[in-house]
Design a protein around this nucleic acid. Structure first.
Lengths: 257, 257
DNA sequence: GTGACGTGTTGCATCATGTGCAACGGTCAT
DNA sequence: ATGACCGTTGCACATGATGCAACACGTCAC
């Protein structure tokens, strides 16, 4: 809608691929060097872009700080965190919290496994949406047309032989998940890793987040992991309850006494 | 430099404080509602801003993804990570990696303690710059005028009785650190937490990053932690060595065969 | 039910602002 | 020295961002 801003923001994903110099930025934006320079300068002033010693640009520090503050302002996360920690203390495995937003599912919190073998994931990282247990829960709750539209639009990479292969299979799986109120990922993303997940619901019953427990085969078998399901569901329900209970808190946000 | 982009970017920190509606954004920017609307729409298209169900705006998901990709492109981090993990496996404590950028020091990697008591910190979070051991190392290596200017500009919050109280004390400490080539923080940030840190240097000898091991008093005393210093320094040197060795790698970034 | 707010949204005329150009000034390699 | 290359600056032009006013839609009071 706003050409200038649009161009400026297009620089960010471009730099996310790696550092680039002025000429490269200008070329890929399709604008004159001087224009690119002014855009980069503005981004720089706001700390979103950093100029490294070789004069090339890369993404800047404020970006982290912003993402940081953003994630800390999510009230689901705030409420859920102590529950996640407690669950981790009980079972020892990696615990994740994820939300759906704008065609993506992403982790917003994580408590690391206490076992030496850990899985790779990181807060802020978009989740493998077609296979992850938390993603299934979040998408299963979308309004039907939106769910269908999204399912059609997605790619279905075959991470393993047990990955969801295509849209119909995915929609069928979502129906099951929606029905039973929990979800699993048994080796659908990484051959040796299994997850069980449960939904967190707001006061209106809609799924606002999902949490999961993940563990590699070498630590516990899929069957053993499934025995944790009741515990995971109880934890998710506890969070749901607390979340629905007191949403109007947060006194500090009103600025006038 | 570019007014439009400047205004648009100013929205981000504003939303970082918490969700806001169109009117609030327009007011705080000092522009007309319609202008704010167009800016927000552009930000929205790029996923930097999300419109929640109550129509208010908050920071969006792409922000995380960007911060994510940015941190993964830092080659120091990439090289250092396995070393940090190994160090953590040896000593069991929390290991941090930090860089200096634009008047801030921030963590770019972290391996959690294997002890139940963990310290609060998060990747992307700006570090307590006047007391943290890694910050001392990074600032100690700045060119003298810049270091002095920065030291004068900083605040010196007294987190504890052992926090650095003011600029002269800080500069003195930096001189010591620069001299000895390592740094500590003994209860300067949190009464019961100690750190030892060592610098990672590029081929030209300049400090490009710093790493630290942190542990609370309840796990090991400060003296015990100090016995790890040689190990920490060896690790940092190993990273420095590897980092200086092969910086021109990264073949994939050239797009034409 | 009706009217009066408080929202977010759209079309449009004005001119401020962003734009590309061309010229300048460094740095590096030959 | 010389040329090629890259970042930077000043400037004239017109594109595109701006604020206004009017509209649309909801909520609330009465």
């Amino acid at each position: 809608m706003s050409q200038t801003v649009d161009r400026a923001l297009s620089i960010l994903p471009l730099l996310a691929e790696g550092p680039a110099d002025l000429g490269q930025v200008a070329d890929r934006l399709g604008v004159h060097k001087s224009t690119a320079l002014r855009l980069l300068r503005t981004l720089h002033e706001h700390g979103l872009v950093y100029r490294q010693s070789d004069q090339r640009y890369r993404l800047g520090a404020r970006l982290f700080a912003l993402a940081q503050e953003a994630v800390e302002n999510l009230d689901v996360r705030e409420i859920a965190h102590p529950h996640l920690v407690r669950l981790n203390e009980t079972c020892g495995h990696t615990v994740h919290l994820a939300v759906y937003e704008e065609n993506e599912v992403l982790y917003i919190d994580k408590v690391e496994s206490r076992y030496p073998v850990r899985m790779y994931s990181r807060i802020g990282k978009p989740v493998a949406i077609t296979v992850a247990a938390v993603a299934k829960l979040l998408l299963a709750d979308l309004p039907e047309p939106e769910r269908r539209a999204l399912a059609d639009k997605l790619d279905y990479p075959m991470y393993t032989a047990r990955s969801t292969p295509n849209a119909p299979a995915f929609l069928k799986e979502l129906a099951t998940v929606r029905e039973q109120g929990w979800a699993t990922d048994l080796g659908g993303h990484e051959e040796s890793i299994n997850c069980v997940a449960a939904p967190i619901r707001g006061a209106d019953g809609r799924v606002v987040a999902a949490m999961s427990v993940s563990a590699p085969n070498v630590v516990v078998t899929a069957d053993e992991l499934l025995t944790l399901l009741p515990l995971v569901r109880r934890t998710a329900d506890a969070i749901s309850h607390e979340y629905s209970g007191k949403p109007p808190a947060k006194e500090e946000s009103s600025r006038r006494p």
